[in-house]
């Protein structure tokens, strides 16, 4: 069972500030962490390895300092870390990110399962997982809250829904994106930390993964940020109290008053 876990380094959400001029996230001086959902993806990968054997590879696209999340991944049980890093990747949107991750995975050999977080807490699109699966023509399920079984090349999962969950089966190789309910991630171990300190993180450039210039970075990103703004406040809210009938009456009165 060889598992690839896609991990994004994100600014610590405890410390989010917007640049007042550009309205984008101020990244200067903000501490970087492993995307919280990806910690759960990693934990699930490590648990699968512990029961089924195999290797867990942590993969990230990002600037050189993203190496630190890969070391953290090793301290939590990943066997190795691969960082795809190149100035040419700068400005990638979710499409170009998915393409780049696909090329990196194809350059890295055989795998049975790709695990992603449901979404990154900064970009927040939840597109990279499905985008990557689409690019690789892999079956995928998003928002997985439980892996029920893995047997004979079939993986059975629970997908979280608003009103319960779906049970789905898919053949491996496959891609799953996970929600936080899937597990309670372990704390990095002491031996893991020592291993991580010594580990060599493999760094792949655009050339190493054979990425085409027009598909990566800004050039490969069809998304255009037309405008970033803070939505205007939605106006006053009013809470009705009392019995259900009373609340309905109050609501009707309120609505009438607008007519």
């Amino acid at each position: 069972m060889n598992i690839i876990v896609c991990i994004k380094q994100v600014p610590d959400a405890k410390d989010v500030r917007l640049d007042p001029k550009t309205n984008t996230l101020a990244r200067e001086g903000v501490e970087s962490i492993m995307n919280p959902f990806d910690r759960h993806a990693l934990e699930e990968g490590v648990r699968l390895k512990e029961t089924h054997g195999g290797q867990v590879t942590a993969l990230s696209m990002g600037p050189p300092q993203a190496e630190s999340v890969l070391r953290e991944a090793i301290s939590c049980g990943a066997d190795q870390g691969v960082l795809v890093s190149d100035r040419a990747f700068a400005g990638a949107d979710t499409w170009a990110t998915s393409y780049t991750l696909r090329k990196a995975i194809e350059a890295s050999g055989e795998f049975d399962l790709i695990l992603c977080g449901k979404q990154a807490i900064d970009g927040d699109t939840a597109q990279v997982g499905p985008g990557l699966a689409g690019q690789m023509k892999l079956p995928f399920v998003t928002c997985v809250q439980k892996i029920r079984n893995l047997d004979d090349g079939i993986i059975q999962v629970e997908r979280m829904m608003d009103d319960g969950f779906d049970v789905l089966e898919l053949p491996v190789p496959a891609l799953l994106t996970v929600v936080k309910d899937i597990n309670d991630p372990r704390v990095p171990s002491l031996k893991g930390k020592m291993k991580a300190k010594k580990a060599t993180i493999k760094i792949l450039s655009a050339a190493d993964i054979g990425a085409e210039e027009q598909c990566i970075g800004l050039a490969g990103s069809p998304t255009r940020v037309v405008n970033v703004f803070t939505p205007a406040p939605r106006g006053d809210r009013k809470m009705f109290t009392g019995s259900l009938e009373e609340q309905v009456d109050q609501l009707v009165d309120q609505l009438r008053s607008y007519l």
Partner: peptide, 11 residues
């Protein structure tokens, strides 16, 4: 069990 996984019992 979490402490065990973190290698704390080995110190």
């Amino acid at each position: 069990e979490d402490m065990a996984k973190a290698d704390l019992f080995s110190i």
